[in-house]
Amino acid sequence: MQSRRACYNVPFKIAPFNTTFVLNISPQTSPGGEGIAFIIALDPTLPKNSSGQWLGIVNASTNGTSEAAIVAVEFDTRQSSTEDGPDNHVGININSISSLVQSSLSNTKDSMETLLVSPPLNLSSYFKQEVYVGFSGSTSNYTELNCVRAWEFNGVDIVIEEDAYGGIEDQIQHSSMAPKKYQLTELMKATGGFSNQNKLGEGGFGPVYKGILGNNKEIAVKRVSKNSRQGKQEFMAEVTTIGSLHHKNLVKLVGWCYESKELLLIYEFMPKGSLDKYLFNQSSELELQYSKVLDWKTRNSVIRDVAQALDYLHNGCERRRVQFKREMKLITR
């Protein structure tokens, strides 16, 4: 069992490029194995223990993690696991041996020009500096000869566009009042990839999704829209200021995330939703639970709770000099 990488020895900065290559794959056993891949990688070094099903792309410890730092177009010649695609398929992989999209190469008689179309990929979201391009491949108990007969690569050596939110992580982590930092992969898994089924609503800064963490804790994740009026300073202010507030009538900010140009705020989840639905009976589900809108005694109690929270924000919290100018949304626990 072996694996190898062959990369161009000069790195290039992420920029538009096009590449064309001709491969010759000759099985030495029946079936052949395991495959070859065109790779774009932060590190040209071959990962340890990356033979067999790993195709020299990743190994068991880096598979599915940002540590892998690799994008690959794989030509996989043998199905080596139940998660793997069929024998003889081409796929697009990001930091993983599992393909985002794939298509079978078996029994292909027509032109392969449009056999596989990748989803839009912004490589600068995965690589923040220079990268290497080349090929990787592997064998197992099944073997084949992988030959790159020809390869042409044309790219423009330009500097990656400066991140509009550059330095945000360092500034937040230097604050003693900042809550926990979450990983994007963790939040993607918790929200089902920001699935519409988990969407709770949308505010002035972007949509909010329900999520369930690995410890079964329910959260609400606010995903700041690219077109939002909330910028770098507002985001940092919310993390470092709102994150330090503690009051029974305020929703607690439990974490934040900035990764791949995604700004995310994580709040505790309020299972009963927005108060306006109770006040105005706008939800059919609530109509089954309540025969009428909230009575005035309950409304007075709600008003008192809101007033207590506002008084805390203006007079009671430790950072009294902070002026709060935020949209106020009433929710129920």
Rank of each mutant, 00 (worst) to 15 (best):
E152W: 06
D170H: 07
V159C: 07
W151I: 13
F135V: 06
G201S: 04
D170G: 03
P179S: 11
Y165V: 02
N154G: 14
C147N: 13
K180N: 07
F153K: 02
I158F: 06
L200E: 10
V133M: 07
H174N: 09
C147A: 04
V148H: 00
T143W: 11
I160T: 07
E202T: 14
N196G: 13
Q171D: 14
M177L: 14
P179I: 14
Q173T: 13
E144H: 09
N198A: 03
Y165S: 01
K181N: 01
C147G: 05
S136T: 12
K181P: 00
S195F: 02
N198D: 11
E186Q: 08
L145H: 07
L200A: 01
V148F: 05
K181G: 01
E162T: 12
E152Q: 15
Y165K: 01
I158Y: 07
E161M: 15
A190C: 12
V148S: 03
T185Y: 08
F135E: 02
M177D: 09
S175R: 10
Y142L: 06
E161W: 04
S136R: 00
V159M: 09
N196W: 03
E130F: 04
L200N: 02
Q171G: 02
A150Y: 13
G204E: 11
S136Y: 00
E144Y: 00
Q197K: 14
L200Y: 05
S195E: 04
E161C: 07
E161I: 14
G134W: 02
V131G: 01
I168W: 00
E130Y: 06
